[in-house]
Nucleic acid binder design. Structure first.
Length: 586
RNA sequence: GGACCCAUAGCUCAAUUGGAUAGAGCGCCGGUCUACGGAACCGGAGGUUAGAGGUUCGAGUCCUCUUGGGUCCGCCA
């Protein structure tokens, strides 16, 4: 159940009742900062003090009294300047947890009441290039957000908006004719395409005739030339194979792959519409939106002197044009309610302009830029995408390294007798732990801030890192294995009791799951789930150290098995919602 | 020239969007174990939230200014 929403409801009703108001007022329920203040606090009295012209403590007193007698509430008392502190009843928590424990489908997380159709636009690599570390954040953050939104009941469309139609294809086409080697293209296509692209782009920089030729080939491609079209299709096809391998490794999938090329035919219409509605005008041969000339433009854009260009003076369109066409398609053909763009913070201005243009065009679909910070190296500077010898560090090689590092640490653990991994499980465990460590290190922090990439921290496997959580899960699984039990059977039978302080603490953490998942969905912040799973694992480890499970008797044993099962399920579900796996033994 | 973002413990990051005495991990110091898995548990030290004003019952969070860092901005994506 959504605990905070429930408390907000009973809190606001209590306020209305206690103060004889004509309607409910916000209770402003928040978790307390310190357990000695109870579990939650109601801050509404202080807000109302001014409106009603009475001292907040005088309002808080009857509110506290009105809350007494409700099942969930053990104690409600006034404190400080006018807080109403709520202590939840252990019996009520135990009963609620037992219900959630029996809910194998959703672990007690209710679906949203108003499901929406949401497009999540993420990853978006360029064709004919390897994915590199720069694509990591968009891919895993976008995947996590998609999983979360989907789980809470939204209709999610994961869209990989490939860069498959830009100026690089003109260069590639002329380059392949000049330097291309068919054998290399067969055996290692991306490497060959990158090699040729590099040569072509260098040549174009100093050879104007060559650059013109590339532009001409691009124009031919875009106007439907059969030969160029075939080449382009071949580029796309081999690129897809390489991309699919990386996505498989990351366990990331898409519902649609609507790259830039999918919108090509819509582009002239976009420019016509902008011109026709007086939003854009021609300037120096190009078609531009000048924000400082539009009264209805957002005010910080109005100060922007430089325009938003939607068609170059040579007649070619830009990604701005494509992006507009894409929104129109999502709004008019897909009937989406929202679109989320999981893209680097640095493109913030572009999206402000795009969204403003869409509003001027009369599109009312919710558009949101889900920005994220730069990946930094240990030196605090943006992580170089090339290594010391100038080779690009590909995403595939980074993931390979994470698996190898994980494997090395697991080997150490096995040698020291601390870990239990069967030889035949080694590949799977290194993959889950290694990839999980990379994902967790990224997802556990607020996506907006820059993120420092540090192998040692990720693979040190101590404290707040992916393996700590997976280890907690393995401990849970191990209890069932040792007892000859299965998690789901134990869950089905168990009735939870909260007897000792560590069990009560664990229970309170378990109670927060649904709120956390919904909050993460609303704010597009996967780190909230990571934080919860970490706190839960900590609480479980405390419980584990203090409370015997298999050696306990009767109802206590049954309850502790239930708490263990529920912890395991929340860790597994929580990690799954951010795209990280678990294993039974590690 | 304009726009946007950031500054929290030695380091890496939180802080439920304005709530009480700002919390974790790493590192440091001290403790726990004949154990359902020590990649663990418990405790301690460590802070003028860059600085100065302001708004109000209440500010790390909102407003203004200052300092220091970053990013983006006419024909790339």
């Amino acid at each position: 159940m959504l605990l905070e929403r429930y408390l907000e409801t009973i809190g606001s009703e209590a306020i209305q009742r206690a103060l004889n108001l004509d309607g409910p007022r916000p209770a402003l329920v928040r978790p307390t900062t310190d357990p000695k203040f109870g579990d939650f606090q109601i801050n509404g009295a202080m807000k109302l003090a001014k409106e009603l012209g009475r001292p907040p403590r005088e309002l808080a007193q009857p509110i506290a009294e009105a809350l007494r007698g409700i099942d969930a509430i053990e104690k409600a008392e006034v404190a400080g300047p006018g807080f109403v502190n709520i202590h939840l009843s252990n019996a009520w928590i135990a009963k609620t947890l037992t219900e959630a424990l029996h809910d194998l489908d959703r672990d007690g997380v209710p679906p949203v009441e108003d499901p929406e159709k949401v497009i999540v636009d993420f990853s978006s690599p360029n064709i004919a290039k390897q994915m590199h570390v720069g694509h990591l954040r968009s891919t895993i953050i976008g995947d996590a957000i998609s999983r979360i939104l989907s789980f809470v009941g939204h209709d999610v469309v994961r869209d990989n908006h490939l860069g498959d139609w830009g100026t690089q294809f003109g260069l590639l086409i002329v380059g392949m004719r000049e330097w291309g080697e068919e054998a290399a293209l067969q055996s290692d296509p991306i490497t060959e395409l990158e090699r040729v692209y590099k040569l072509a782009s260098e040549r174009a920089g100093r050879d104007e005739a060559f650059a013109d030729q590339a532009r001409a080939e691009l124009a031919k491609l875009q106007s439907g030339d059969a030969d160029n079209r075939k080449l382009w299709e071949h580029f796309v096809e081999v690129s897809r194979t390489a991309l699919d391998a990386v996505y498989a490794e990351l366990d990331v999938s898409f519902d649609v792959w609507l790259g830039e090329s999918a919108y090509h035919e819509a582009l002239p219409g976009v420019v016509d519409a902008l011109l026709g509605k007086g939003i854009a005008r021609e300037d120096d041969g190009a078609v531009c939106i000048f924000w400082d000339e539009l009264d209805s433009a957002p005010k910080n854009l109005r100060k922007q002197k430089t325009p938003f260009i939607v068609r170059k003076k040579d007649g070619a369109f830009l990604y701005s044009t494509t992006d507009i066409a894409t929104v129109l398609h999502r709004a008019n053909a897909l009937h989406a309610d929202r679109a989320l763009y999981v893209v680097d913070n640095r493109q913030g201005l572009h999206f402000q302009q795009l969204f403003a243009a869409m509003r001027l065009l009369g599109v009312d679909m919710a558009l949101e830029h889900i920005g994220f910070g730069t990946v930094l190296g240990r030196d605090g500077k943006p992580l170089r995408t090339r290594d010391a010898s100038g080779h690009v560090i590909t995403l595939a090689s980074l993931l390979e390294e994470s698996k190898q590092r994980a494997r090395a640490r697991i080997d150490e653990g096995i040698a020291e007798g601390r870990l239990r991994v069967r030889p035949e499980e080694m590949d799977e465990v290194s993959r889950v732990v290694g990839i999980g460590a990379v994902k967790y290190a990224d997802l556990r922090q607020n996506r907006l801030s820059d993120y420092q990439f540090d192998w040692d921290k990720m693979i040190s496997f101590q404290g707040n890192a992916g393996p700590y959580l997976q280890y907690a899960y393995a401990r849970c699984a191990s209890i069932f294995a040792k007892g000859g039990l299965t998690m789901d059977d134990s869950a089905a039978e168990a009735s939870i009791l909260l007897e000792t302080p560590t069990e009560q603490t664990l229970g309170r953490h378990l109670m927060r799951f649904a709120d956390v998942v919904h909050q993460a969905a609303i704010t597009s912040q996967p780190h909230l789930i990571c934080e919860h799973v970490y706190e839960l694992s900590r609480a479980f480890n405390g419980f584990y150290a203090e409370c015997p499970v298999l050696d306990a008797d009767g109802a206590t044993r049954e309850s502790r098995l239930g708490l263990t099962a529920m912890t395991a399920r929340q860790i597994r579900r929580g990690l799954d919602l951010v795209g990280i796996g678990v294993v039974d033994r590690m």
